[in-house]
């Protein structure tokens, strides 16, 4: 290794300190900018009594952005958030259609056409103490998870 010398050593020390300071500042900036609190909408929404959601065509609960579907096994909630880029899908014939890039889903949320990489998400649906439906749009469940009634 070449002789560094006092000047060289001090220069390395100075540059090193600068790099360290810059790196730490950059890291602190990123940590600072990553918001630790969320003021976004809650993931859980109360949807009213199960009687509001008859069998047959899915009912759209717009404050939560889910379709509530009823069949003989119970109730399910299907998220209306398109799995492609997050637009809200709408009822279209028998299935669902995303207005942003044209993804089509069948009535069980499976992809029929378009850029969507996967089927729509079913999300957790429960009854609260007062007998109202509560949906958690962040909690994905299996497609055959039903909320049994009565």
């Amino acid at each position: 290794m070449a002789e560094v010398g006092r000047r060289g050593f001090l220069r390395y020390l100075g540059v090193g300190a600068g790099v360290l300071l810059f790196g730490e500042s950059a890291w602190a900036t990123l940590r600072f900018a990553r918001a630790p609190v969320s003021y976004g909408p809650p993931s859980r929404h109360a949807l009213g009594p199960p009687g509001d959601y008859p069998a047959g065509a899915p009912t759209y609960a717009d404050e939560a952005g889910v379709f509530v579907m009823r069949d003989e096994r119970g109730l399910r909630a299907l998220s209306a958030t398109c799995t492609h880029l997050g637009c809200t899908v709408r009822k279209d014939g028998d299935g669902f259609l995303c207005p942003c890039h044209g993804s089509r889903y069948d009535n069980a949320g499976r992809v029929l056409a378009g850029p969507a990489p996967r089927s729509l998400r079913f999300v957790r649906l429960v009854l609260d103490r007062r007998g109202r439906l509560v949906v958690d749009v962040d909690a994905e469940v299996d497609a055959d998870t039903h909320l049994k009634l009565g």
């Binding site: 990123l30 900018a33 990553r34 918001a35 969320s38 003021y39 976004g40 909408p41």
Partner: peptide, 13 residues
């Protein structure tokens, strides 16, 4: 995306 939006969805942050 979290850094850009400051939240999980587009909102006040």
């Amino acid at each position: 995306a979290l850094l850009l939006l400051g939240d999980h969805t587009v909102g006040e942050a």
